[in-house]
Structures are given as C-alpha cells and as structure tokens.
Design a protein around this nucleic acid. Sequence first.
DNA 1: TCTGGGGTCCTAGGACCC
DNA 2: TCTGGGGTCCTAGGACCC
Length: 423
Amino acid sequence: MKEIFALVDCNNFYVSCERVFNPGLEGKPVVVLSNNDGCVIARSNEAKALGIKMGIPAFKCKDLFKKHSVYVYSSNYSLYGDMSQRVMDALTRFAPRMEIYSIDEAFLLLTGFTTANLTDYARYIKTTEKKWTGIPVSIGIGHTKTLAKVANEVAKKYPRYAGVLDVTDYPQLDELLDGVDVADVWGIGRKYTQFLNRYGICTALQLKNAPDQWVKKNLTIMGLRTVKELRGISCISLEEIPAPKKGIISSRSFGRAVETLPELKEAVADYVSRAAEKLRAQSSATSFIQVFLTTSRFNGPQYSNSSSTRIPTPTAYTPELIRCAHKCLNKIFKPNYRYKKVGVMLTGIVPEDKIQLNVFGTSSSRDRWKTLMKTVDRINARWGSNTIQFAAAGIKRSWGMRQLRRSPRYTTQWSEIPVVNLS
DNA sequence: TCTGGGGTCCTAGGACCC
DNA sequence: TCTGGGGTCCTAGGACCC
C-alpha cells in the first residue's frame, strides 16, 4: 500500500498569531521582524502584495511601511511558541501518527484511512483548526512528503483550491508539476535552482524526469531522493520522535555594537546558559564547545574568529561550560573592534547516561551539580526563563536585543493576558 | 544609525593506521 | 633503482530547511 502524507502548514504563521489577539489586523498589511527588528520574516498576504520581500532589512522598507500604513511587529517567540503548541495539540486528534516538522508545519500520516474523500477530511481539519486555535492552515496531500509539500504550495497559491489539495490518485499530476517552479520544490534552494536552470530544468516536472545518474552526480543523493519523491516513491519517512540534537547553537546579534571584553563575557555566559538548558532538556552532555564572534558584515573594520576546546568528561554543568567558553573568548578577543554578534556552539553531544567518567571525576560531585541544575531548570520552567540565572550573564544587559514593537505575551504571562471589556 | 537564528546532511580532503 | 592500498576518523565547507 502506498503511503499517504498530509502536510499541514500554518498560513503566514507569525502574522496569524498576531491577528488572533488583534482582529483589527485582519485584511491589513502586517509584517513581523526578526530579532533586533532587523529583517522582515513574516508577511500577511496584503504585505506580500505590496512587494515586501521575505528577509529584506526593515530599514529599507521604512517608506513603504509608512506609505501603506503597514502594521509592523517585533517577533514575539513566547506567543508563537505557545500558539504552535496549541495548533499541534489539536492536530494530534486527526491522525494517530504525526511529525512536527517546524514551528508552523506538521506531517500527518493518513495511510490506510478509509475516509472516502481525503479532501473533505482535510477541509474538516482546516475548519476545526481555525475554530479551535484561530490559526488558518493549508493542507497538501500526496504519496510522498515532497508531493504533499508541492500540493500545499499549490493549494496556497491558487484560490480555487481554498487551501486544500490532494494529489494522490491524481491523473493530471504531471500538468500540475509542470506549473510548479523548480525553486519551489522542497530541497531545491537558490544554488541548485541556478544550476538546474542552466541545464534547462525550470519546472518540477522537468526535475522529475531528469536522469538519475546526472542528478546524483550533481545534487548528491539528497537531490536524487527529491527526484524519486516527485515520482511518487517515498524516500523520506515520518519521524514521529524528534532525534536528540547533535549540535546546539546559541547566538544573537547585539542591539548595539559592543566593544569591551566584560560585556562580551556577559553575553557569552548568557548564551551558554541557554544552550546548556537545551542540552539538559534532552538529557545530554557535551564534549566540545566553540565560541565565535564577529563584527558587522556591512560596515567598519571587519574581524571574525572562533575558538574551541574539547571537554575531557562530557558535561552539562553551566558554570563549567561558562569557564570553558570564557577561555575560548579570551583567545580570540581583539580590542578596538565594534562587535555585532557572539555565539556559542556545543557539539560532540552524548547521552548523559553514557558518560565515561575519567579517573578524577567522582560521581558524587556529578550528582551534586545535576541536582542543582535540575532545580534551576525547574524553577525557570515554572516561573519563566531567567527567573534564576548565573551572575556571569549580567543583570543590565545593555547589549541586549532591540524589540521596539513586540505585542503582549498574551498566553504566557499573567500580566499580559488580554482583558475583555464588557461595558 | 538600522541587515535573524538554529538546525540537518553530504562531500572532499587530510591525518593516521595497518 | 624501487616509493601500495585500503580503511576510518575528523574537519571544513557548502548545500538545504524553517
């Protein structure tokens, strides 16, 4: 039996989250900006229609924003994360097997569903999601994940599908693929698009019909997998349980240029704390830590560098990781530069229960820090992140992120909960 | 003035081993 | 004079995703 995948994708997710709590934004051009209010990362259809491109720096759109009264928001990840969870929770009711693919997308496995009409079922899911969460979704259905993605793209693009398209058992599939730009195929990015176009491959159909050997040679076996999936051969399976991360990165641009070592150390300690928290959340420890820093790519004297160190006995103990990270930072810091960003990367991640203690490590000291970290994590989970933090991460954090237009954290902070006025 | 953050996988090439 | 070959591991870099 051929498998059947449905891809459920939230429409303009961040914008839709803002609209749930501010219905006045309906029908208006709305954009959401990246950290530091840097780039446009989400746009309502009205904003797309104004020609505002994905990823464009906000300062380049100032005039356009003003002229068309665009509603502009800083990203509000507390809100989006929480809304995402609601959407996903609701989705679990519609299929026993599902993979959460990203903050705004999930694959449902509909193989073996006896429902006579999958399109009707998808419409039902769409309506229910909207009713329960306020978030509009589009749904594409196909025999492979890649085809479900294509179906979703098409469903979103042409109003006649009203956000739902099933391409299983679909005789005109080739005609449909002929109308899809190869750049819109999952797995084909900018570089591959340029490359393929040079060889006259411009549509999904042309890619589907490209020779295997040629594809494998030029697009690696990943590209070949994509091609096979376009042909209806499922090569990418459903991953219900997320695999533990092999690397954890924490980095952020500063709200302003930072020049002094003490401030950089604060930021590094802050990012290490976040990364270590994620590490512990997946019950892992790390054996390799890397610190990197960079000035702005766009102006001023440029400098970037990185330094790393191996940790003999893998750990998830924040103070130890901060010590290692500061050592790395000292090695690469050069005065008289205006730094824009620092970051921390943890790799060589191993499951916490598989750690080989070295001759000097005693398990009792490990037990002590484990208990300590568990307590810190529990308090922060209960009362909000950074309720307890390490002093090394700084209190004032004048280098912190700029977020001038963040909406309230409606669903995760009691003090910001919406108030209904009945008078 | 102002340009995000966090992941995955594959490949090539060098070091090293027998 | 003659200068192998195959395997593994690691890293850097490049492609992709959201």
